[in-house]
Design a protein around this nucleic acid. Structure first.
Lengths: 201, 201
DNA sequence: GGTCAACCTGGCAGTCAGTGCCAACACGGC
DNA sequence: GCCGTGTTGGCACTGACTGCCAGGTTGACC
């Protein structure tokens, strides 16, 4: 029992250490300019061990934020079949963006670094897309079960649509921050949701 | 002049030959089970030459359909700033899907094979996502210039939203076809557009 | 018809990502 | 102190991808 929890905590810590090292190196020398050996050396582990923690070097920059993830999980578990799904999803993502506290919270600071990097690194965008795909697929599955649909077309479209608003908002936020401009993430997201809801002019 | 056109035609032909070989092999043994050497051998070229045609093995399965691409290009060039962009984009994509003729046209047959493969092959989905990203970015740039916006938030969201409808429709089409069910691509797309336009309930 | 220049191609050698296998090791439970 | 489980690192290997160079092709031009 406690043993498992202990190991889990240890694992998380190592994960974070490797992730931090990767992020530093990626920022300093680009993803292509950084080898797995570099990351492993910086994190004090062997390359072989690196691949026991991450399936690719890009993924090391995308360590999930456990605490935030758990909150999302809880919110998604609480979705109701009785209200429009898009409304509820937008509320959930809004909560998440709020938790980033414009880059001041732990999760926010981290995500800001990652999204900034992503803007310059196609390889990172790809890796992030793969992660997103998995998560959104799972979410679609959940929604299908929730509303008892025999067809996942609508849930899938709603999930993807909501996802687009989030992704575009985050990207613009990171881009503006990088350029020194201040952009309110939540306001951008609200605007994005508006556009997505009535995209014709 | 003519020389360039000739070389271009030659190049296209080789591209198609390599692409066909890759598609065959991917269908037979999966993407992971196929090496670049395999593809090169089947296409009668050296591995070194393969990489002069494609930047990765996955991309060999995603050879653009020149004829269709040119039509799309022409349609996108004819977009007007005076009508809602989403309406126009949906019309363009509708034309494209129409040209697939439910998998009976050359382009349709090819795309059906590719989309089928993509459903089983994450690596292919990733590669396709990278291609899409580039194209959609270019389209967003075009729209920004067209409407003279100082801000690409709205065009980007519109383009991505329209893209989601297309992608989801194609995926469902390929999936249904694979399962032996008949699904009308255009009808699915129309339904997807409807959902995307009023995603709440 | 021969020469020139601009490609196109293949081979070679090298880097690096990622994996299977095995031996050493850490550690909590007994 | 011993045991089982899980973690780690080294080794060797496959395979993607690249830079470089040495022929070969081909159309253009005299």
């Amino acid at each position: 029992m406690t043993e498992i929890a202990l190991r889990e905590r240890r694992r998380r810590q190592t994960e974070r250490e490797i992730g931090d090292a990767a992020l530093d190196l990626f920022e300093a020398g680009g993803v292509d300019g950084t080898t797995v050996d570099d990351i492993a050396r910086a994190a004090g582990i062997s390359p072989r061990t690196f691949f026991r923690y991450f399936p690719s070097k890009e993924r090391a920059a995308l360590v999930p934020h456990v605490e935030l993830d758990e909150r999302v999980e809880a919110m998604l578990a609480g979705l109701s079949a009785d209200r429009p799904l898009l409304d509820q999803l937008e509320e959930v993502w809004r909560e998440v963006l709020l938790a980033l506290d414009d880059g001041r919270s732990e999760a926010g600071r981290l995500l800001l670094r990652v999204r900034r990097l992503m803007r310059a690194e196609p390889a990172l965008r790809l890796a992030a897309a793969a992660v997103d795909e998995e998560r959104l697929d799972a979410l679609v599955g959940h929604l299908v079960r929730l509303v008892g649909a025999d067809d996942d077309l609508e849930p899938r479209l709603v999930v993807e649509t909501a996802g687009v608003a989030v992704r575009v908002s985050l990207d613009r936020w990171a881009g503006a921050r990088e350029a020194g401009r201040a952009v309110d993430l939540l306001e951008t997201y609200a605007q994005a949701c508006r556009v997505v809801r009535s995209p014709g002019r």
